[in-house]
Design a protein around this nucleic acid. Structure first.
Ligand code: SF4
Ligand code: SF4
Lengths: 133, 133
DNA sequence: TTAAATACGATAAATTTTGTCGGAATTAAA
DNA sequence: TTTAATTCCGACAAAATTTATCGTATTTAA
């Protein structure tokens, strides 16, 4: 509960590296996986997602790889999380229709407020800040 | 990721009810479970945990049940979450020793800061606020 | 004495996360 | 033109966590 998933951590580790060491150059999944002992395939998918979201730029083919596309100062944690995981919030009453408590639930309304607060909280933290340096 | 567990939601639903309808009187697990269609056994354990933490007062035996012991304004979400789940934080580098990345990890330090920030965030939300009314 | 309740531990089922596999498309370089 | 290194994508398997259930002991008011 409230923990990041491994996937998200791997993404942060990769971004941190790129930011520090290869901001202008490409780096491949394989290389990153080796450097930080991450499972290649999972990291691969993660980076692909970041590329789709245009956080990274992907270059295919031999000698290809990834580099940061959008400056990390310009991306906030809410956006970032929502690229990799679903919507940010402690509950998913809105999106998720299949909560069997829904009708009887007496905390729906206050939870909506907390969810908004939490989004705001993560809105105010930039990816740069998390990735450090 | 970032979602409450069912257990925590059940706890909130129960507390919300007690706060509104039985602040002075006892209510049993069974009754609560029936009212909100919650699985009795899981709710039972949850309430037991809250009783251990002195958030609830438990009265054993026939005609027993639970009622709120500590005013909900006096309990913050960090405390509350930590009664039911583990430590609040996006990562568990500190407590958890078995992260294989630990040595190589390049986001440990910034993550510590974010974790602190998050604790502060939840420190500032009282249980009363979440439970509504 | 009985019935209704909390307390606790073990276990099973379901779900989610994590990791793996196989192959397709792309492209720089030999 | 071929090869090797890469991104890309979907399906699957394994592991971990969450959720639900069961059995039994203890407490206590009636
Ligand atoms: S309706 Fe209530 S129980 Fe269902 S997800 Fe929303 S807050 Fe949780
Ligand atoms: S050491 Fe790094 S990878 Fe491990 S839990 Fe902490 S932040 Fe996550």
């Amino acid at each position: 509960m409230l923990k990041l998933t491994r996937k998200t951590e791997y993404a942060l580790i990769a971004l941190s590296h790129m930011q520090r060491f290869t901001p202008k150059n490409l780096i491949s999944t394989k290389e990153l996986a080796k450097l930080y002992q991450l499972p290649v395939e999972l990291l691969a998918k993660t980076l692909q997602q970041l590329a789709q979201a245009e956080i990274l730029e992907a270059v295919k083919g031999a000698y290809g790889g990834y580099k940061i596309k959008t400056p990390l100062e310009q991306i906030n944690m809410t956006e970032f999380f929502e690229v990799l995981e679903g919507e940010v919030g402690l509950t998913d009453c809105h999106t998720n229709t299949d909560c069997s408590q829904k009708n009887l639930c007496n905390i729906k309304t206050p939870m909506q407020k907390i969810n908004k607060k939490m989004r705001t909280f993560f809105d105010e933290i930039s990816l740069k800040e998390v990735v450090g340096n």
